[in-house]
Every structure is written in structure tokens, then in C-alpha cells.
Design a protein around this nucleic acid. Sequence first.
DNA 1: CGCGCGGATGTGACCGTGCACATGTGGGGA
DNA 2: TCCCCACATGTGCACGGTCACATCCGCGCG
Lengths: 339, 339
Amino acid sequence: MSENVDSGRAPNIRDVARLAGVSHQTVSRVLNNHPSIRESTKQRVLEVMSELQYRPNRAARALVTSHSRTIGVLASQRSHYGPSSIIQSIEAAAQDAGYFVSTANMTKTDEDSIVTALDHLNALAVEGLVIIAPQVRVLRAISKLDLRVPFVTISSTDDTDEHAVAVDQVAGARLATRHLIERGHRSIYHLAGPQDWIEAEARMLGFLQEMNAQDVPTTAPILGDWSAEFGYYAGRELMRVRDFTAIFSSNDQMALGLIHAIRDAGQDVPQDVSIVGFDDIPEAAHFWPPLTTVRQDFPELGRRCVAHLLGTMGNAPEGFPGRIQPELIVRASTGPPSF
Amino acid sequence: MSENVDSGRAPNIRDVARLAGVSHQTVSRVLNNHPSIRESTKQRVLEVMSELQYRPNRAARALVTSHSRTIGVLASQRSHYGPSSIIQSIEAAAQDAGYFVSTANMTKTDEDSIVTALDHLNALAVEGLVIIAPQVRVLRAISKLDLRVPFVTISSTDDTDEHAVAVDQVAGARLATRHLIERGHRSIYHLAGPQDWIEAEARMLGFLQEMNAQDVPTTAPILGDWSAEFGYYAGRELMRVRDFTAIFSSNDQMALGLIHAIRDAGQDVPQDVSIVGFDDIPEAAHFWPPLTTVRQDFPELGRRCVAHLLGTMGNAPEGFPGRIQPELIVRASTGPPSF
DNA sequence: CGCGCGGATGTGACCGTGCACATGTGGGGA
DNA sequence: TCCCCACATGTGCACGGTCACATCCGCGCG
């Protein structure tokens, strides 16, 4: 109806070939800049192409080659700061390498959603896959489905996983916890993320490891949902008991909620309670007080991820990708040493 | 090399047909659930399909039908709260309607990046396009390129734009400004977003309109970059002069930076300065003090957007999509009326 | 009993591109 | 002069679906 296509349908290589007086294969060679094409022929073909506003049909190309120069990203919760930052850096890195990126979001984390999302990417004939799967069960479901393409996961439960590119969450959590212990705190709570999130589990593990290593009695972690809202309500409950001097929150948003609750209870940070977060979201430096937190280098993560994936794809195995070390950013939400 | 495909290649409809003892066309009919297929035949075919783990090849399908059941989203700055929320709700709405979503991100906003991103989507044979183009120049570049597919833009400079689905930014800014004026403020600054962002411009316009309407002398808006960091530095400068009692910030992040700077200067919110933000990010309720701000209904925006687009695509024009009215959320960062 | 009709299924062409192979052409060495 | 080879280009088919059309079969009706 409302199609304003000139000749009823988009031009194809044969149309170009006809007008340029060559065969369709020659046009194809120009497209894939094959070496043995005479310069004059190439120019003529290119001219006709731009004249017709020719655009190669990628469906056809993908059909015949099973190649698409596309990397798929399987993500969930892409509106969170972490995932979206990673996706952004993956896109940048992939673009530099001449690849397209298509993302598929999982609204839920059941196997059906995973399969649907993978189908979506599969249908695009992606050549490689980056799986940003913060939930344990997603990772497990994926390892069951045997993927036909090389893939890389971000974050893993398993240290020996050759597919994993990750930030060392355990080390980050230990940094945060040690910082609190060094400042003299002995009653420290941990506000963790949802139980089935890999990051949440790793941070919890790091917390417990460090507490044990330093012989500080541990408390049971509180399981949250990453939201500031949850941090606030958890903080309200905690302030009723008031048997702690510091809290290590598994992300910055929940830390914000905690601070809110502490102030609502008439106390202050860091005078009465010290708080450490995780992620170093851009806002963390401007919380009141500015938040001590653990920074993850997301851009680096994205870059390594794409590099590792392309390595795997290009039959040039990069070996073990290693882990990125996070960094403790000390700000005012943890006071000066109290001893 | 490392392909662990069972039989060398993925099964196709002919493989399914052979095993089910029918023709490939019958398989195709089952796929598209054509009415005149005997139930027993259908079941047999479906069984073989799941046995072979058959998945239709979308490239092939797109090639022959020129249909892809895919909606493209052209976005920039997708890591920002607004765009990412919108994308998420678009995905949900599209999925409900049986459509896939592919997003293309523009790292820069020059015409080249736009064309590259559009090519990407075009190559996927998208049937419709949602353009989340917060910058004026992007919108302008796009209106020059004549797209071959129906499209919808989010936010526009032009009230009569039939392609636009948008939140009424001007009305939102007026709400915020009026709120400050009603509380007795007469010296109000506006910390705006970057000049070429449509939202920034609209909010600035709303601010100026309301100030004029209420006969309050206006000050020149300060042009920011949306970041908390900028808000902080702008706040530091402003606190040197200290000739105001309220600031309307064009987003919540900059508002956070402002609050930080005000406290650094030894003053407080809302006692000395009232602050209003824009967006109502999930954290805004837990800022200290909780932030008065303007809420945009992103989920609704995404839904309407998809509905309007599908309407356009399905030859069932929906008429003028209208604007979504934002809502003022009053919290503690603006004190009680001072008169 | 023959005819027509509609449901169920099969046959072959086609979408736009890339690949394997064939063909043509010109130049250099024996 | 002839042959061989490298370069430049052309020919036909394959990819995996869908579409238009053909075919087959059983049933109801005149």
C-alpha cells in the first residue's frame, strides 16, 4: 500500500549486474571485495549500486553463508546499571571489530524464555554469543542446551570455566569487608542480592571468607532484591535491633536505601553506621555521604569479552581469559579508622 | 572445526518431511498452522520436529516473505535510565504482539552512525521502527533519510508530528516549576540538559513558560550533561553566588549532584534550597532528602509506542497518538509552603 | 452412476546471495 | 609457435523456506 519503492521491489545484484553489463557474480565479487576484479569494472559496478541505492539483502546472505557478522547478546535485567554498561561496551568493541550486535532480553528466567531468546538470536544466524546471565539457573539451563555457536559468559560459578570472562566478585567483596574490619568494625551485616544471582552469591561468599579469615563472628546475610526500596525496608528492620556498626551492601542502590533508613531512625552515616556498596554507579560519588564502594571495570569487561569471543570464533584460542580485579573506592560513608 | 552439529548441518523442513512421510509443503503448513491439515498428520509432523530439534530458519523465511516479525529500535545512550526503561517496555509490548525486537545503538550522533545503525536494522528486514532519538539532530537527520518502513519516534519537537509518541515534557516542567513558585520561591534556577536534546529543550521551555506565566523573573538556564558529576560542579559554582532559593534540575542525577554541592557548602535541602528533579528514577525516593520530581510513565510510553506502530503497520491507522501526561511526585526535597 | 466440490496433500518455481566450477583472455617462457 | 598459468569473468546450483498451482480422494446430489 504505502510502499514508496520505485520499481515495486528493492534492487538485487542481478539488477545491478544488468545495468553494469556484468554478471551477478561479478557484482557479488565487488561486494566482498574479491582481489581479482579489474578496477574499472569495480568502479562501474559501484556507481550503479549507489545509483540504484542498492543494499545487500542480509537475509539472503545469511541463508547461503550461515554467516552474519553478528554477535548475539543474551541479557536479562538489561535496565540495571551493570548489564547495560556491559552491553554498551560490548557493542563498542564489536563495532570496532566490524561486527554487529543483536541483543535479546529475557523477561523471565524460566527455560522457555531462555529458549525463546536464544531462538531469536539463532534466527539471526549469530556467529558468537555473549551471555550476560546473572542468574544461576540461566547459566545452568544454557549449559544444558548445547549451543551451536561459540559463546562466552559473563560471570560464572566455576573458576575453571573456559567460557567465562568475569570480574572477581569474591575478591571485591573481600576488599569491602576487609576495609570495614580494618576500620575496627566487628559487628557487620551483609545485605546480599537475590539468592540465585551469581554475583550475589559470589559477593556473599567473599564476605563470609573475609570475616572468617579475620576471625570476626559472622551474621547471616539478608537476601535483598537489588532495589533501593528493599534496602530501605531492610534498614528499617535492622535499626530496630541496632546490633551492628557497619553494613556491606551488595550493590549501591540498596546501600542508598540503607542510608535513608538509618537517617530516618535518627542516626547518621558514618558516625553511627558505616556503609560500603558495590558497583560504583556514577551517582555513588554524590550520595550523602559519598559512598565507599567497589568499582568494576565494565568497559574492560566488555572489551575482553569480545576479544575472547572473537578469538574463539577465529580458531585462535586466546587461552584462559582471566578475571578482572575490582577496586575499592573509599569515600565518606566509611569513617576514619576508629582505633 | 569445532562444530558439534549432529548430522553436519541443522535439520530443515525437508528432513522433517522425509521422516514424517509427508511433503515439505505439509511441514510448512504445520508451521504456519494452516487450517486444512489433518490432526493426525499434524501431530506426526510435530513429533518429528521436536525429535530433530527442528527450528525454522528465519533468514530463509525472511528471504521469501520479506517479513520478519521484527521491530527495530534505534536508540542512543541506551544506558541512561529513560531509554533503557523505554526499550524494556517496548520489548515487552512487542513480545505480547508476537514480534521480535532488535535494537541498534548509535555511539555517536553523526549522520554516518545513524546510517550504519539503520542499515543494521534494515538488513534484519524490520517491519517497523521505533526511534528513541533524544537529540534534535538525530531526528532531523532521520526525517531527511526517507525510511522504507513505518516508524514512530519517541519525543518530537513538533506538536503536529503524526509519528511522535511522547511524554509531555513541557507540561512536566511546568508542574515542577509551578510547585516551586507555589511554595513561595521567586529566585529559581534551572539546571538544563544538553542543548541538543529534545527533552532538555522541552523542559527548559516549560520552565520558562511557567515562570513567565506566573510573573516570576527568569534566570538563564545552565546547560548540563545529565550527570550527577555535572550537577555537583554546577552546584559548587552556584553556591558561590547564592542568589536563589530553589533549583529545578532537568533530571534526577543532576539533582543529586546539586544536593551534594549544597551540603558541601554547609547548607541544607530543603531548609536553605529546594530542589526538584525529573524522571523519578527508582533511587529518587531514597535520596537524602527524598527527591521531589516528575514521574514519566515509561511502561505506558512503550506500550503506546508499539500499539501506534503496529496500527500504522497493519493498515489500521490509530490516529493521533497523543501525549502522556507526567505526574509531580512531591517529596521532602521541597519543603512545606513558606508563606 | 457421473459430476462437482472442497478438504488434504504434493510439485515445482522462486526469493537474493555465495560457492564451485567452467570459460575466456593475454602474456611469458621453452 | 605453442603451451601453460594467472587473472578476469560467467554459469548453474544450493541455501531453507513459502507460494501458486496441480492432484487425489471421498461425498452428496441430480
